[in-house]
Design a binder for these strands. Structure first.
Lengths: 155, 155
DNA sequence: CCGCGAATGCAATCAATTTGCATCAAGCCG
DNA sequence: CGGCTTGATGCAAATTGATTGCATTCGCGG
């Protein structure tokens, strides 16, 4: 799985060609807006809200609807995951990025109740006790875990 | 019903007087709509969405806005908690019910990704490993835990 | 039983999305 | 390399759900 250097948080520079490949192989055309969205998702490691994405890319002249539709397209293609981290905001997180990009496995998220910030916790593991009464999938760990609390800044 | 014989002492039948007391002691008037909402929250143990509440009580002639405002009032009074369990739907859960009603402590929730059903897991405990990089509050367990997956029905 | 202010019903407003449609451009073919 | 076909985009209108304004009604202390 991981090569010696795979753990390094260094983002593999999203190569333009790689991004295009990813899109094309998913049956999506490679357009400026899509490359921008996809590239941005490769740069940031935390889930982004639609608004965040629009702020970050809006100055490039893309339309809200376009970004929105692209995010949905990417989600449908299985490239990103669309989730609500508990703050009533849709967020999009890269799931199946260009080859070699990490951050693809399911992992817990932490959302700050105060500032709304999101932290990914790929290294966190949970041990569950007293799963009686819980759905089977809980015992089988076939679940998504989400934590809410105060981040170090806000506590 | 399940006779897990566990901790649940049995839902104390929400006495009308008790509900009124609860409202009055929170500075809220005891009205038909409020008693209905509060009573319903005492009966159901899982968080209810605004829509669910309206479905359940709407036939009694209450207005959407009224139920909505009442839920907000109760939330502001600290009687219910308003949370988004990750499906982009606001849910309201009893936090400080009439004396003796349980279900008041913070506990994990499980949301089914398919049917949207919610299960409370008051008995579930978690052991966290590899909290490095996570906010301090995680290690201190000052957090809300939420699980998403498929319930037994949908799996 | 009366009066004041909170609560309610109804409609209008707001905000966040989502969709319709004419236009433009990516990918394909000759 | 220049069209051609169809998906993608921009702009604006349509939706959907959440909130708020306001006149009326009702709870409840006096």
């Amino acid at each position: 799985m991981k090569h010696a250097s795979a753990v390094a948080p260094l983002p593999s520079p999203p190569s333009l060609a790689a991004l295009q490949d990813l899109l094309r192989s998913s049956g999506l055309r490679s357009t400026a807006a899509r490359l921008a969205v996809l590239g941005y998702l490769h740069e940031t490691h935390t889930p982004n809200s639609h608004a965040q994405m629009f702020d970050a890319l809006g100055d490039r002249g893309f339309d809200r609807a376009t970004i929105y539709r692209n995010l949905m397209d990417l989600a449908e293609a299985g490239i990103v995951r669309r989730t609500d981290l508990g703050d009533h905001v849709w967020r999009f997180e890269l799931v199946r990025g260009v080859a070699g990009s990490r951050h693809t496995e399911e992992h817990p998220h932490f959302v700050c109740l105060d500032c709304g910030g999101v932290v990914c916790l790929p290294g966190l593991s949970l041990e569950l006790h007293g799963t009686g009464g819980a759905p089977r999938s809980v015992g089988e760990k076939k679940i998504t875990v989400q934590l809410k609390g105060l981040c170090d800044n806000c506590s």
